[in-house]
Design a protein around this nucleic acid. Structure first.
Lengths: 200, 200, 200, 200
DNA sequence: TATGAATGAGAGTTCATTCAT
DNA sequence: GATGAATGAACTCTCATTCAT
């Protein structure tokens, strides 16, 4: 149905798609990748499976949209905050802080995203265009420029980027194990470690 | 039949179980959680599906054993190395280093473990009894003791333990993206960051 | 709504029906019976599926109309030519020749017709009222009258009618395998065989 | 399961496969290509759908086997009879006669074969390796050799082969319309026509 | 011990049809 | 008259599990 991509969607359709995406996020977060069958998602909104097939080309498209919508929102949230920083140290600070804020405010969706990314079988196209690898790459770039400017010391920027991203993403685990966890404090702690770590 | 844990297993049976576990690891690593069907695993050893059902109570038990065998081996490898350290700083060093060595030498099995942990739907008993949570807890303990001894400075031990474990585990990603990645160098870099981080 | 056959159709409606029938023919010819879904047909004219349901009682009626419109046209084309023949041999000649001419000029529609006739499950009302059986019957009649007049020799008229119709219809295969096939030459050859065959 | 094609099949399996093939033939003959769902076939033997999937790689393989088994049997039946002919006229005679005999003795299976051949959507691999086209080709060859030998007169061998095959295949229609039809008599009639037709 | 065989549930998809707007 | 939306049944296929042999 959605063969003509340029067609604008009607109001109703946009609403349904959003509703389905929300349901998908919920089910993914609660029952995991393998629990997120089309029936489970449809059941949650109280419609038939066919509705999903009607609004999305297939399960793949649905999951890809789940991922890309979260990624887009995270870029929208973090981008301006990082770019308005006036030093590399400040940018690093803004990066970690805004990232964790976003995570904190989108717990459900983050869990869903991780389920999709981790759950997608290796023989299928990854559901995030550039996705996570890109996140590491852009972080690496920031660290490198910080080094060139003399603000940061000597270290392997790629390795540090990987470790930092992992530390940030671990926030999900933290929340999984304890939904009341103090994300802000965790962020502050991670920041302190890595700020020390990149200092000259 | 294998429900009675006190029954001693015959030699043949232990061998079969081991063989099946190995096959499961291979298939999990290559085709992911959803690709690891009982038929795929059975096919790899050239036996019928029934064999697996005979030796394991069900797929769940098989996967849980995959996980627990890797965790047990990692404890066996790291334990002595960490415990023989004569200072907390040395223990931290030994922890990270031996952990990464183990990861490096058991790539296949680690990937399989991650597949199981990530793939298992949340409504089912988690495949690692205490597992990861335990790892974080013991690391937290080590950091706390280091603080009490005055060797380490002031920080939140739990948060740092979470971040450090995440940084270590990120090694798998590193390897997934680049199988030739220099694990040792990555470990050294992570160590440097966190050693700085915990210093008084 | 269109169940009341006596209702006169408006101009617009007749146009729509014709348009839909054309689209159905095209899709049937290109994608076969099973590829001819209502969506595929609707998409070809750029309307919604509902339009078809509005103008036809159901898919069955649509397909039956496809068949009957082709058959009607073939009767309109062949009838006068056959009837104006002044001998039975001439009638036979006119029959085969005009039939193949019609086939040649309506390849698309013929293919569609065959798809419908072959594709319709046997437990459903056959899409050609009397249809093909009728064609054989009228041909049989012609042969019988030719025999009674002494123009034709001794043979089983029904059997010959069946074989001749089959030979004529095989033209579709010929065209399917080679769209450039010389239909006229094929017709001449078939005629020669059967003219010899029915001679006293 | 049947991944290793060289594996011999057990007795039970051969029996089941045969049983399934028979059921498929019956259902195809009775309910047509589109009525021959896996459930319908399974239901007829009183087993679950899964059984078919267990014994055949998929519906495609099942249908292909239906076709190839009939074609193989028909070759086995006709081949020796045609080859033992001592003249081209005799060969033509044997061809038509043995073909119709085979048709007569395998009515059900022939109808099933035709359903599969006609029903398979055009965008899918044809279910008969060489199949019908081959039949026409070999018949064409026989006619050509008969012409070269001087036994047959002047005509287009390809066209006559197409028409003759069509006349023979029309026997199925004959049977469909009247299950008591005298196939032998029909064969004799067709033979007479075409023997006259190819005479010099 | 191991196998082949069968089951039955559940997956994603497609489709004709219905209906409020 | 026409549309978008939704339904529900049917389809093929996969899989963990069970069981007689």
């Amino acid at each position: 149905m959605r063969s003509d991509q340029r067609t604008e969607r009607t109001f109703t359709e946009r609403a349904r798609r959003a509703q389905i995406l929300d349901a998908a996020v919920d089910v993914l977060a609660e029952r995991g990748y393998n629990g997120a069958s089309l029936s489970a998602i449809a059941e949650r909104i109280g419609v038939s499976k066919g509705v999903i097939s009607y609004h999305f080309a297939g399960k793949d498209e649905l999951l890809r949209e789940v991922v890309s919508s979260v990624l887009a929102d995270s870029r929208d949230y973090m981008g301006p905050r990082v770019e308005s920083a006036t030093s590399y140290a400040a940018a690093l600070h803004a990066y970690v802080q805004s990232n964790l804020e976003f995570l904190d405010q989108n717990r459900h969706r983050i869990v869903a995203l991780i389920e999709v990314v981790n759950g997608t079988p290796p023989d299928r196209p990854a559901p995030y265009g550039p996705g996570h690898r890109n996140a590491v790459r852009s972080l690496t770039g920031m660290l490198e420029r910080g080094q060139q400017s003399g603000e940061f010391g000597k270290f392997d920027p790629h390795f540090v980027a990987v470790a930092l991203r992992a530390a940030i993403d671990a926030c999900s685990e933290l929340l999984r194990d304890d939904p009341e966890a103090d994300v802000k404090a965790y962020g502050a702690q991670v920041l302190e470690i890595f700020e020390r770590g990149v200092r000259p």
